[in-house]
Design a protein around this nucleic acid. Structure first.
Lengths: 343, 343
DNA sequence: TTGAAAGCGCTAACAA
DNA sequence: TTGTTAGCGCTTTCAA
């Protein structure tokens, strides 16, 4: 049986309230007595009972806000699933979670949602941000008011956010490069199609891929990076053009979206399977292409954890006062082939 | 704020105790009243508060036993880590976890440990089994006494265990086959080295690999399966012999242990890198070989979850009466290259 | 068959 | 500065 406050109180010859004040630094206590109590608690291996604490604090009621942009995308559905699961878990401990979904990316609406959540009494907020000055200011403002903010999926560098939960995008590009280097035949050319030149994530993936692939395969030519602005039609046109210009194209790395367009172009030219495609994100469409063998590898993000972790980290921070373990909580870089899709 | 028993009692015009009896089927209650209360609870969306329940039940104290064989191996250290984390988590809810570690595989000691744990009052047991008749009988005996048993890492087929947590080994072999098919050049031969011909896991991996690889690459010859009995010296000798006999050997799949031996033999013959190696298990030694590029891929087991899940499933079963979601809780089949090792 | 009440470990308000 | 006490939501025992 675990040690209780009462047992420590008895051991120290004081009351339960005094032990509580000592161990939780609530002040209004003699410093020496507090020290002595802390030492005793330590020796007895005291671990606060979660259930007792949750019950006692349930009137104070912790509320956690979550702002998810691009909530209508398949990837974010996984994130939302993780956040909902975390919600169910902390609700059983008496806390509340409010989730605000925003279609597309819209910094203005994200800022607005954050203000709403603060007004609703949220004690902490997790947000999928975009790189935007107002959003950064809002994060800093909240942090100043002692409302911890966690960025997830995407980060706001240099802001006062508590921590970031998401993928190490540079490393993700390197993972793709390693795989591509393993499966390409000798010679030929490889093409990188990115999404937006301004997106941090896309940029980092591209950089990681180019740097590592260059080191691994000097025999393969690397074509200039193309941008499809996350548009399948663009991706298709780029692929068509490149196929015409470079007959020895053997590999395509998609740093963002556009799988459908790429595959369509390859199919039209009868190059399916001959040009090896590696892409990102385990969307259901991408997964289908993987199953059909039209893509070789998908690099996944573990969206579930990206939704789950921020809520839990905030809950632990607010409920237990526990600081997050790392400033960058990188989620796993998952490699999927058609064979390890289900788990 | 969530709905409480008290609120339902007020709504139904009865006492809290009556509501409790109705919702938890404790008997000693008028059936019609019980029905009415259940309906009201349903309408109000009642979800029992975990903290309250944990606190009230803390005198009854749930104890969960864990028996881990081969506990001295690096892989099982991960499993133990997961079990310890689960322990910490359920201890905070007032439960206890007793972990019994056994070096090597020893069915007799495992049976003994299970009896000890039952004598110590365990309400449920998770065990890493071997295929052994006494062990199976013990599992069935405990299940008959209403002490749920979960097998993890390895299974006892046809026993009365509640569920199995671990890898789908057949599928794991197919994953390796898919990767091997992607990275081997045309022609040549591939060799499969398994561990024990009697081990279910090794056998399934081998079968999965052979079946899938045969479908994928008809141009590559498949040599007879060799067995190294998890011994590096054996693996080394096998590799040496095969390298001599088949100059066009281009790939080796290790269904069990023996990476060190294989790599040593390849190095001696100057074939390192030329013969592509895929193996299982993220042991620190294997990871080192992966980092050095001597192995192309490692198929991992997610040992952490294999230790964590069984304890949590047992806790939920005993504490909440919640049945496990699936009979086979397959853990993810993780693909690791040198680039996605850290997460 | 039902109600009333004690108590699980903790926090917080109040009293001393 | 310290002790006392009510109460969080639930289970369980005892009394009606």
């Amino acid at each position: 049986m675990a040690v209780t406050l009462q047992q420590i109180a008895k051991e120290a010859g004081v009351s339960r309230g005094t032990v509580d004040r000592a161990l939780n630094n609530r002040g209004r206590i003699n410093a020496e007595v507090a020290d002595r109590i802390r030492k005793i608690a330590d020796e007895m291996g005291y671990q606060p009972n979660r259930a007792g604490r949750a019950l006692a604090m349930s009137k104070r009621s912790i509320t956690i806000g979550v702002v998810i942009q691009a909530a209508d995308t398949p990837f974010m559905e996984k994130v939302i699933e993780g956040a909902e699961d975390a919600r169910a878990e902390v609700e059983r401990m008496g806390a509340d979670v409010m989730i605000r979904k925003i279609d597309d990316f819209d910094a203005g609406m994200a800022v607005e949602a954050m203000h709403e959540l603060r007004a609703a009494g949220c004690n902490g907020i997790a947000v999928v941000p975009v790189d935007d000055e107002r959003l950064k200011e809002t994060v800093d403002e909240f942090a100043g008011e002692n409302i911890p903010v966690i960025t997830f999926n995407s980060d706001i560098e240099g802001s006062g956010r508590l921590c970031f939960v998401g993928q190490d995008t540079f490393q993700s590009g390197r993972v793709a490069a390693g795989l591509m280097a393993d499966i390409l035949p000798g010679g030929g050319k490889v093409l990188v199609i990115s999404g937006y030149p301004t997106s941090y994530g896309h940029k980092n993936r591209t950089k990681g891929f180019l740097q590592e692939f260059g080191l691994l395969r000097e025999d393969v030519g690397i074509l200039d990076v193309q941008y499809d602005f996350d548009d399948d039609r663009m991706a298709e046109m780029i692929t068509q053009g490149m196929l015409k210009e470079y007959e020895d194209l053997t590999g395509i790395y998609l740093a963002a979206s556009g799988v459908h367009g790429v595959c369509k172009a390859l199919e039209e030219q009868g190059m399916e399977g001959k040009v090896k495609v590696i892409s990102n994100d385990l969307t259901s469409q991408n997964v289908r292409y993987l199953e059909e063998g039209k893509i070789r590898f998908l690099i996944g993000q573990d969206g579930y954890r990206q939704g789950y972790e921020p809520v839990m980290i905030l809950f632990e921070k607010i409920f237990d006062g526990k600081e997050p373990e790392k400033e960058f909580a990188y989620t796993e870089i998952v490699i999927k082939t058609k064979y390890n899709l289900v788990c």
